[in-house]
């Protein structure tokens, strides 16, 4: 278990990501620490996926709401940049959750960047990148040549 108060950690860990709600903040790997002091004040440290991630404010509000809802009174949330987030920090269940939602996950840590992704709809490997930049900073847009469906890909960042 990570350091800090287990209960507060569990509450924050279960908060869904505002832009990828199939992942929790823990799945996404952006939750760095949750510290509760003797007076019960909580300090949550998060890291952004991309420098300009517009979901940071929403994340802050969601974490605040979850902790206040659980009875914590003083809640502070900070973002730290170092060490920089990479897709290698995704939690163990993240890839499964992404695939189930039709979003092609990035490769496992240590694997080379794939030239072709498996289509989440039909499983074909005959896919191509339509645009390296998708609806959010962390995603790319792909298309399957077999079934014709477009799909999103959480792109590798290392």
């Amino acid at each position: 278990m990570p350091a800090g108060d287990v209960t507060a950690w569990e509450i924050v860990a279960a908060v869904p990501d505002p832009e990828l709600p199939v992942l929790t903040l823990e799945d996404l790997g952006v939750l760095r620490s949750v510290d509760v002091d003797q007076s019960g004040s909580v300090l949550v440290t998060l890291t952004p996926t991309y420098s300009g991630c517009p979901a940071m404010d929403a994340m802050r509000a969601d974490v605040q709401r979850a902790l206040l809802g659980a009875g914590y009174r003083n809640v502070a949330i900070q973002f730290e940049l170092a060490p920089a987030w990479t897709t290698d920090q995704l939690g163990p269940l993240a890839r499964e959750h992404l695939a189930a939602a039709g979003i092609a996950p990035p490769g496992e840590p240590g694997t080379p960047v794939a030239l072709s992704l498996k289509c989440p709809q039909c499983g074909s490997l005959r896919t191509r990148e339509a645009s390296h930049f998708g609806a959010t900073s962390c995603k790319a847009l792909w298309q399957c040549s077999a079934c014709g469906e477009p799909f999103e890909h959480l792109k590798v960042l290392r």
């Binding site: 952004p48 991309y50 420098s51 300009g52 991630c53 645009s131 930049f133 998708g134």
Partner: peptide, 20 residues
């Protein structure tokens, strides 16, 4: 359209760096 999204993403990255 794809380029519209791409340029907006680039702008957003730079804005985040600028803020920091």
């Amino acid at each position: 359209f794809e380029e519209d999204v791409a340029l907006s993403n680039l702008a957003l990255d730079l804005l985040g760096q600028a803020r920091a």
